[in-house]
Each structure stands twice: as structure tokens, then as C-alpha cells.
Write a protein that binds this DNA or RNA. Structure first.
Lengths: 214, 214
DNA sequence: CCGACCTTGTTCGTTTGTTCACAAAGTCCC
DNA sequence: GGGACTTTGTGAACAAACGAACAAGGTCGG
């Protein structure tokens, strides 16, 4: 998040930035910014702030963003296809290097400039293309097996879009994005609001207005 | 998450479930399950567990999932188009009811069965279609304005896919999904692993093998 | 009807994460 | 060159989340 903010700051030709300003832009507390940045080392200058360029270099290095990380998308259904077409990954250093599916009728066909490969080809793909990250975009039922096969093939970073609990060995990293879950959380607040609204209506009370925290 | 797990459990024709089993399936601690479920009320039976059907009803009601929540996708670029085509939202009670874009050359054209509407139409769409949730899939630069206009139009729940810090008034709810950020986090661990691997190689130490926490 | 057994609901100590507050360090103007 | 001012880095206070442990409540077999 800091990285993204710093890139914007850099684009505005600012050479240094204070923790306070960075906190404001990133939407967090200034003390937290300083504590977080201190893990990189003491790169700030008291009385001045942090050198934007230097911070960006250090941060990119620490985050491993000085090289590209080829990703494989497993599951070329609705979501997988959508993600494959979405250009945002490649732009940010995560080129989609392979598409994989278990469905024999899909394997061998082209999609978005890639020939869809079989799940069994995973080890070869890792070897040939240096796949570092696997994206699971299969139905929930197949997610765990795909994860297992990704790990077996040597992929140690997995991003799971399938709405299922998936576990991996400790040496592998797993993150999950559950789109429906996010909407359900919003639905929860929407629900509470509806209840609040009908209650207020019933009681003839006007809604309180709150100020944004920024 | 519990809801999803319970639906699977229900599909297997189990009528009751213990906090321990539910915890295992959901990948969390049993005490946490009991604490979480206790917010719904005391729906468990000591010595037996929780009634799956009853829990599902209570939970769906509490989460506001007993009705559909129409969503509007703002920004029909790569990501917006991908999300619009992805059927997963509708299946889960969040039908895509409208597509909105600021680009005049897109407005009026059809996409995935919807005529793309102008940003200015938002208040009317909220009125006509009962849009409850707005999904921001624009470039980062436009995200804040879209959020402001969604809120102004009466949408109080927003899911932001744009890689930008967006703020909303306190009465509105905002959640964000940053796909590139997730990959960057994975890259960080991948990077550490690479460093670890080269260090170990240099020192002639073999990698430690860790057991999964399950 | 009773005792053995199971599972919930909740308390409480522990850990983790965030924020405040301030000394140390450095800049900048006169 | 010196003093006023700014900003970092971090120790200590505060807050939130987690998980172990256990009493209370309930089932079930005999």
C-alpha cells in the first residue's frame, strides 16, 4: 500500500515525504507508518522525512518486485477467463504465463493467446516457464486438489479465488480472495441499515449524520 | 465462512454439528466458533451441538441473505467486463442489475445483456432497480469520484477493486479487493524464500521441512 | 431415575497489534 | 553559529483478538 502511494507521490515530482503525509495518503496512522518503515531500516531523515526514490527502491527490493513473477491460472471457467483477460496482473509484474484446466475438452484450445494446458503439465510448466505463483479459479470442489498439485509441482505461492477452505504445507504461502464473501459482508451492513431505517421510521427519529474518518 | 461450510455440511445430510467439527471444516479455532455463533443467540444444545438447518436460517437472516441485493458495476473496462461476465455474483444473491461507465463512447452500447449507462444515471438506477451495492472497477484515478457519486445516489455499500485509497462517509460501508496487492504479498514471501534458498545453498544447509497446521 | 459422558457458553490470562508521547537528530533562518 | 522548529525512531500504554480451560446444561444408556 505504501508502495502504491509512494509511486503516486513520485509521479508528482516530490522528492521527500513525511510519515504524517504518507499516513494521510495511505489512510493509516503516522506512528504505524514509521514503525512499518523502520523494518526496512533507518531510511528516514529527522526533520526532513523519507526520500521517496530511495524508499521505493528499498521497498521494491524487500517485496521482491525487482523481477517479474510469472503466474499460472488454473481453471479457465468464468472467473479464470475473466482474470486471464484482465491486464492488471501483467502491468504490475505478474505476467500470466500459462492457463491450466482439468477439462479435456478445454485442454489444447486457445484462450487469450495461450494454449490451455492440462493439470498434469504443471511440473513441466513450472520448469519451462518458471511459474512462481498459482491462481486457483476453479469451483470450490476442485480447489484443494489443485492446491496440492501446484505445491507438488513446486509452486509455493498460491492465490485462491475458489470459495473453499484450502490448506497448504507450511513452506507454501496461501492467500484467498472470496468475492461473494465480500458482498455478503456488505449485505450484512446493508441489512442492519434497513433494520435501522425501518426502526427509525417507526419511531419517527431522523437518521444521525456521522462525519467521515478520512 | 461458517455459512458456506454449513451449506456443505447440510448437503451431506448432517442435521447437527459440533463447534469442534465446524471449526475444523472452517479452518479456525473451536472456541472462536462458539464465541462467534453466540452472537446469534444461544442456538446450540450442550452435549449435542448446533442444528445445521436452524443455524443456517438464523445466519442467513442476520447476514441479510434472505433477499437479493442488486449490484451496479461502475467501470466496464477489463476488470469491470470480467466481473460482469463472471456469473458468481448472481448465483449468490447479488445479481448484476446495471453497468455504468463514464466514457461516452461506451454509454449506450450493450454488454452482457445490459445497456451501459452513464454515471449521471446513478440516482435513477438506484431508484428504479433498487441498487444496494456498487462495485468500483475503474482505474485508480476515478475511484474516489465514483465512490462519492455512488454515495450521493444513495448507495451505502461499496466494493472497491481500484488500487486506490477511497474514503466514504461513516454511514456508508466500504470494502476493498486489491488483486495486485495480493500477488505482491505472495511475491514478498517468494522473495524471502529465494533469499533463504540461496543462503542455504551458500551455507550448504538443507531446507527444514515444516508440517502443515491443517 | 441416575450417573457417565459430551458440548456449549463464557471467563480469563496471553499474545498480538495499534497509538501516544517524547527524546534524539537534523534542518533552516537569522 | 545558535536557537527555533520539524520529523524520525521507539518505549510504554492501550486495545483488540485469540485460545485454553472450565462450569453449566443437556443427552443417553441402563
Amino acid at each position: 500500500m505504501y508502495l502504491r502511494t509512494l509511486l503516486e507521490v513520485q509521479a508528482e515530482a516530490m522528492t521527500t515525504i513525511s510519515s504524517e503525509r504518507l499516513a494521510e495518503l495511505a489512510g493509516v496512522n503516522a506512528a504505524k507508518v514509521r514503525k512499518d518503515l523502520s523494518y526496512l531500516g533507518s531510511y528516514g531523515t529527522r526533520g526532513v522525512g523519507y526520500d521517496v526514490d530511495h524508499l521505493l527502491v528499498q521497498m521494491s527490493r524487500e517485496l521482491g518486485l525487482t523481477r517479474d513473477w510469472p503466474v499460472a491460472i488454473v481453471g479457465v471457467g468464468n472467473l479464470g477467463a475473466a482474470l486471464a483477460n484482465y491486464g492488471g496482473f501483467g502491468d504490475r509484474g505478474f505476467p500470466v504465463a500459462a492457463l491450466v484446466d482439468a477439462d479435456p475438452s478445454k485442454v489444447g484450445t486457445m484462450f487469450g493467446g495461450h494454449k490451455i494446458r492440462d493439470l498434469d503439465d504443471l511440473p513441466a510448466l513450472v520448469e519451462e516457464l518458471g511459474i512462481a505463483i498459482g491462481i486457483i479459479a476453479t469451483p470450490a470442489a476442485g480447489a484443494q486438489e489443485v492446491a496440492d498439485r501446484l505445491v507438488a509441482a513446486g509452486v509455493t505461492s498460491i492465490l485462491n479465488f475458489a470459495p473453499a477452505v484450502v490448506t497448504v504445507p507450511d513452506h507454501a504461502q496461501l492467500r484467498k480472495v472470496d468475492l461473494a464473501l465480500e458482498l455478503q459482508v456488505l449485505s450484512f451492513y446493508g441489512q442492519r441499515e434497513s433494520i435501522g431505517a425501518s426502526l427509525r421510521e417507526e419511531l419517527g427519529v431522523s437518521a444521525e449524520s456521522k462525519e467521515s474518518v478520512g
